[in-house]
Amino acid sequence: MTEQTSKQINDQKNKKILILAVRAGEIMMKSGAEIYRVEDTIERICKACNIPYVDVFATQTGGIFVSLDSGGDKSDMFTYIKRIKGSGDTDLTKISEINRFSREFTTTDLSVEEGMKRLKEIDHIKPMPFAIRLLGAALVASFFSLIFGGNILDFVCAFFIGGFSYLLSGFLSRYSINYFIRGLCCCAAAAFLALLASAVIPGADYSAIIIGTLMIFVPGVAITNSIRDFLSGDMLSGLARATEAFIIAISLAVGAGMVLTLWYSVGGVFI
């Protein structure tokens, strides 16, 4: 009878550890970490709780699969499959915090309950306020328009157009529009506004404004992560992210191209 209860306690403990580890991995993956880091974090957390047999398999656009066994003849094997659809917004603060958490968890004897509490706090870290992110996007657009040969007029135009298209992107993602259409709409809006600005304001160059705004939506995260996944041998995730980057690039080009074609074929008749 006592053996039975001790086994139950052990099972309960293993289950909690499993949930903690998968939760940490999930937050990391949604915030845009590489697969290698996700798998490594989960494995470290489990190993820190004295579980000798851990196997983790994670893929981008797939999910996290973890199975663990605390060893011995009587122990059961636990498996947790967490399906993760799509990726959330990139949030590097969360990655940094989880990184710190996993280091703390493995070196000090933090209990699983406390760890779960910490994880919840990390999960609830708010991104920057939307107004400040808007300012960030406007900065990106305006300074890139300067880099690509714009003048001070383009700088001002790109500042507002970049801010507007980021606002549009935020609005569309609230209604969970898929990323292809989102990129297309944002770039189309930016191109249209840029053409309008260059038609109304003499001396403004629409190319510089459009390129500046394009840079906000360029798939830099997908490219970087796909390389790092390839480097650590996660070919599946690497390919998935490379494809994502390619499709986003196409969506941007199509969005801006559509508007430019329409504008040329109408010939700016109305203005």
């Binding site: 969360k94 991104p127 992110r133 300012l135 990106v140």
Partner: peptide, 13 residues
């Protein structure tokens, strides 16, 4: 300045 903008968007610590 542009990189600062990206850091804001991606919420760098």
């Amino acid at each position: 300045m542009a990189t600062l903008g990206f850091s804001i968007i991606f919420h760098v610590p």
